[in-house]
Design a protein around this nucleic acid. Structure first.
Lengths: 215, 215
DNA sequence: CGATATAGGGAACGATCATTTCCTATTCAA
DNA sequence: TTGAATAGGAAATGATCGTTCCCTATATCG
């Protein structure tokens, strides 16, 4: 009797308290698919320009159903933000774990960010950047999540610089934390410029210039 | 008879067709002060979260008066954007013209951007970044202005790199255009992170790391 | 099987927003 | 000095938006 209760609690925690309860009619829609639709809308239009109508279309739900699963529009946004950062962190860690040397892994991350900032994906934009620009100043909770996401990226990059010290692919003189901070500026700036649709003709040149930070 | 007409036309062009006409009751408010108020509102809240009520407060005008001077909310925004980029470009050119060597002028520009991304000013944000993120994808005219502003900054930075070749403060191997592109990423990223309220404890270290791009 | 609990969905509601209207005030032209 | 033109400002308007309500459907518990 207590085991399923614990399982439910764990699922509720991982799903951010948006998991379906045990009693009553079960949820018919897929929460992850619905949130993917919400992510698409919020990335393209931002928070304020996304209407509930936009969200019902993209999530495949009626407004009544949305308000059964979420407290309000902001609650949808926070759930979408959390899923976005979850997926993005997974992608980054995958990219950052492929190559042999730490230097090459950092190069792969730059390429990944540059690719994310190109074409349709670039125009769609980054939800973290969008939240920072549109919401962080007046919403403490959003600001905290944006800060945590940036700190997370910074830590990942700093860790790679430190690994580079160990495998001798990055000179000891390169400060991990300070360099990672500048690299975060660089990557977030790529997303901004990508939103404006200005992509570099030859990304490989851009990457090599960015790699000078590891000198 | 024709001379004042020409003068009026020139003023209308420079003021973006928002100048007061010759006939009728003259405008009582100062257009530049009003636009400064609009700039403050749009920088803090973005476009969609800024209500006409916010703008009447910040511009010191009633809604009826605002609609006498501007076609609609978007027209106010475009005028504010143009004034913002005008002022910002002037500031940048002033900063970029002080030091002796081109390398030092580039360093001053990094410091200027980092300072603009700190504290209250940083939280207030950059109107170009905000426009790129919130509006560029669905508003061609805004996208064009954002693109022009980024291209302008890029050209300014590239020009300094080229000057650095001439005064030998920047190695010849540093490509002006490609390096300027990366520097734009860097500076726009600073504004994003500044919006989130995360400023570097010691800006001078950050600046020196950024200067590695000129290696 | 009946009671309870929750989901799905669409219509209704209340608030807010951008914009217009209308009236007064102030200028220039004739 | 009168008329045309425009500014200032407050109230009215119409549309849109987020949210709630209500009804039906489907599950579990006793």
């Amino acid at each position: 009797m207590i085991v399923p209760y614990i399982a439910v609690m764990i699922k509720m925690v991982t799903a951010g308290s948006h998991a379906a309860p045990v009693r009553g009619r079960p949820r018919e829609f897929d929460m992850e698919e619905a949130l993917d639709g919400a992510i698409r809308v919020f990335r393209e239009r931002g928070y304020h320009a996304s209407s509930i109508g936009d969200l019902t279309d993209a999530m495949g739900l009626a407004s009544g159903s949305i308000y059964k699963a979420f407290k309000d529009k902001r609650d949808i946004f926070l759930a979408a933000f959390d899923r976005y950062t979850l997926l993005r962190t997974a992608q980054m860690q995958q990219v950052a774990g492929a190559a042999k040397s730490a230097r090459e892994r950092l190069r792969d991350l730059f390429a990944f960010y540059l690719e994310s900032s190109r074409g349709v994906e670039g125009r769609r934009g980054c939800l973290v950047v969008g939240s920072a620009v549109e919401l962080a100043i007046f919403d403490r909770e959003v600001a905290a999540r944006v800060g945590a996401s940036l700190a997370n990226n910074e830590a990942l990059l700093a860790g790679l610089v430190r690994e580079g010290h160990l495998d001798s692919s990055v000179p000891r003189g390169v400060d991990p934390e300070e360099t990672a901070r500048v690299m975060v500026y660089l990557t977030q700036g790529m997303r901004v410029v990508g939103k404006a649709g200005r992509a570099p003709p030859d990304p490989s040149i851009t990457i090599e210039i960015a790699m000078k930070l590891l000198t």
